[in-house]
Design a protein around this nucleic acid. Structure first.
Lengths: 272, 272
DNA sequence: CGGACCTTTGAAAGTTTTCAAAGTGGGTGG
DNA sequence: CCACCCACTTTGAAAACTTTCAAAGGTCCG
């Protein structure tokens, strides 16, 4: 597997004022075609390691020639930090870039007329977002950081042009958009066919598998979202989420302690 | 608005054997840059008129130069007929083309392990489908015709190449895919935040508005789907759908007679 | 015209929400 | 450093909503 050491493409921005968003324009360096040498990086805390993940989806030049890589670097050279609770973008904001989560996690939220909110997506490091904005040139949901996070910023018009020049990149973009479609479709099925406890079980298994793909333990994790977020995402109330987790705990499927979750019986969860 | 008379690009295939799918390879002719002269066409029955709609989204060469139009014609020259109940594609089928509904209507269905089915989409004339297949090169749902229908077939690899050459086409593809994302996201919201009667009301209003955009009366239509399909699409049982429609009827919001629906009070439906 | 499929309606059972109240935890200011 | 406060979580009981099971009527296609 070809990789580009994270630090060589992405650099941390300087100090971040409280409650604000910082754009950091940074130097780029040539990526090196070496295997990941420092595997310990993947074990470090979420906020530190995940440019590796982001790159696997969006930034990694797999399948691109040296010339293409150089062009890609020119485009994806900006990162942006979002503090917990702050918005990466909001409904109605002009769409001009796609984003890839480098570190942290982000939820997407649609606000219904009447103030009720629905969480439509949970994005982890490596996930791409923003595709919903292409259609009308405006974002159609809010993207809110669940913890202090950073994202790659991919200016859309430049990226679009590059996709016209490089078929490998075009293919990647199309696959990412198709993935976004499938992500939503899976969510529709989860909401439409499953009962409350099945939905909660699926969410836990989904998070577990996504975290393990990112190099974390699959059986233990700390949720970044509240019960309210989970309920909103799963189309149920926070009380029902809480009760369901308690029941799973009592049944021995999981251990819960607030936001910390340990899965003790994967098969039982799958069979719920 | 520039249009391309439907008949000049799309030709009907010959006889269709019962229960089978026919691919019709057809001659292409040069599109003419004239306004739609026969407006009565748009008023004819669903099964007859809708290539005009399909073109607006996918086939219409709006914004393309003459040279590009010629290339586009080469690609979108195949139509396919699907008889009611038959599949345009099934889960696991190799993905090699996108489709645009020319006439009729198609549902997309995901089959859960256990036999239960969930309808994830209702496509009318002009709607594009198949984007879910790009990610893995295999379709991830079944597409079943709700009535005898026909679709434009857009070979994906050719189309992809053309999008690289023509930025107007690329922009259109990206918008269509973004639209598919938003379509699913709206469905997620419908399933996650609304109660049964709100969901039914929304579906009626949604169908009404989509049909009226296609030149049909917005207040009267004949559903092509069964109560079971509606229920599956809305994440509820067919009995609840039926009861809800009966209640709307008694309340004077709509008139129902089996699959025929007349909306009498749009505001009441919106306020449900 | 017949039969298969679809729709309607009722009543009971089951699931989820709502309302209410108490308990927990973590971060901040004193 | 601790206490307090605010936001989050847990749990209970009643109410609301939806499904399930059952049976009868309709409709449409071949």
């Amino acid at each position: 597997m070809i990789d580009t050491p994270a630090a060589s493409i992405f650099h941390k921005a300087g100090a971040v004022a409280h409650g604000t968003i910082v754009l950091s324009f940074i130097n780029k360096t040539k990526p090196k075609m070496t295997a990941l040498s420092d595997t310990s990086r993947a074990r470090r805390h979420s906020a530190a390691h995940c440019s590796t993940c982001a790159m696997r989806h969006l930034c990694m030049p797999e399948g691109l020639c040296a010339n293409d890589i150089a062009k890609l670097e020119n485009i994806i050279s900006v990162t942006r930090k979002v503090k917990r609770g702050d918005a990466l973008f909001r409904t109605g904001d002009r769409f001009d870039a796609l984003f890839a989560v480098r570190s942290g996690s982000i939820k997407t939220v649609v606000t219904h007329d009447g103030g009720r909110e629905q969480v439509t997506g949970m994005l982890l490091a490596g996930d791409a977002l923003g595709f919903e904005g292409i259609e009308e040139g405006e974002h159609t949901c809010d993207a809110i950081a669940l913890e202090d996070s950073s994202v790659c910023v991919v200016p859309y018009s430049l990226f679009e042009r590059m996709c016209r020049e490089t078929d490998a990149l075009q293919r990647r973009l199309h696959r990412m958009m198709s993935h976004a479609v499938n992500r939503e479709a899976n969510h529709v099925v989860r909401l439409g066919m499953l009962r409350a406890d099945e939905r909660v079980a699926r969410l836990l298994l989904d998070l577990s598998s996504r975290l393990s793909k990112r190099g974390y333990a699959s059986s233990e994790f700390t949720l970044r979202m509240t019960r309210d977020d989970m309920g909103s995402y799963l189309g149920m109330t926070l009380e029902t989420v809480s009760r369901t987790l308690s029941r799973f705990d009592k049944a021995g499927f999981i251990e819960t302690q607030g936001k910390f979750i340990r899965i003790r019986d994967f098969d039982a969860l799958r069979a719920v």
